[in-house]
């Protein structure tokens, strides 16, 4: 039987803005199994980011339970949550969120600094390995502003991988990228998933969602549908079918 990595029961999240209460999540029940590659979909404002932030322990639910790797997050104090984010979770943002004026390598090393089990010698090796996994080993010395958007997102992915988390959470990770670069990023995610990584990926784009194994569609803070993807896209294949850049006339 497959291991359940994420289990969410009756989860609610309210935001209070002045007098108004926004019910961002109403009553969410869902599970993500080990090895899953799940798209969290839905229109803008449907609660996808709110869900992912809670899954990433960046935010707390108003009500309900969230079990990560069998552990109830409600029992954790702030420092324990920080440690969980460090060791079990890898978070990827739409806007990369790299430290400016800091090399790719140092950005990837960042989570390791908060992991006292990692010695300083290991730190560099692990970070280099993560950069190799995302195909950016040769750019380790570049600053974020010397990298393209796709490359910056790869650095961010390497950073999320570096502590070998149980699940990778990505919020609109391709949202700022063009089609080809998006596909290349999806190719990377498919490779990571093939290697056994569990991934939850927020997107509002249907063609991106089709790269994944499963789609969970949100609507107004509720799960509307859940389905397995048939005719799943293969990123490597789709990239090959894209017109070459040299074919495009400007």
């Amino acid at each position: 039987m497959q291991k359940t990595i994420i289990e969410v029961k009756d989860l609610r999240k309210d935001y209070h803005v002045g007098e108004v209460t926004v019910h961002a999540l109403r009553k969410i029940n869902m599970q993500i199994q080990e090895g899953d590659f799940a798209a969290i979909m839905g229109t803008s404002g449907s609660g996808k980011s709110t869900m992912l932030n809670i899954l990433g322990c960046l935010d707390k639910p108003t009500d309900g339970t969230y079990l990560l790797d069998g552990v109830n997050m409600a029992d954790m104090n702030k420092n324990q949550l920080a440690q969980l984010r460090n060791s079990k979770l890898g978070f990827i943002f739409q806007s990369y969120n790299l430290l400016p004026r800091t090399t790719a390598l140092e950005n990837v090393e960042l989570p390791l600094y908060y992991n006292s089990k990692v010695k300083s010698k290991e730190r560099k090796e692990k970070a280099m390995y993560a950069l190799e996994q995302v195909g950016l080993a040769d750019r380790f010395h570049h600053m974020p502003n010397q990298l393209s958007g796709g490359q910056q997102q790869r650095v961010a992915i390497a950073r999320s991988l570096v502590n070998d988390p149980v699940v990778i959470l990505a919020d609109e990770a391709t949202g700022n990228l063009d089609t080809r670069t998006s596909y290349e990023i999806m190719e990377l995610f498919q490779k990571l998933n093939d290697e056994g990584k569990t991934i939850a990926f927020v997107t509002h784009e249907e063609d991106i969602a089709r790269f994944m194994k499963r789609n969970i569609v949100f609507r107004d803070g509720l799960i509307k549908t859940e389905m397995t993807v048939d005719k799943r896209h293969n990123a490597t294949q789709l990239i090959a079918e894209l017109p070459h850049e040299s074919d495009i006339d400007f």
Binding site: G56, L58, K78, N79, A82, Q83, R85, N86, S87, F91, N97, L99, L110, P111, Y114, N115, R159, N163
Partner: peptide
């Protein structure tokens, strides 16, 4: 925020 998201605690 970024440091906390990759595992830095408030104390860190």
């Amino acid at each position: 925020g970024l440091r906390m998201s990759v595992g830095g605690s408030g104390t860190d």
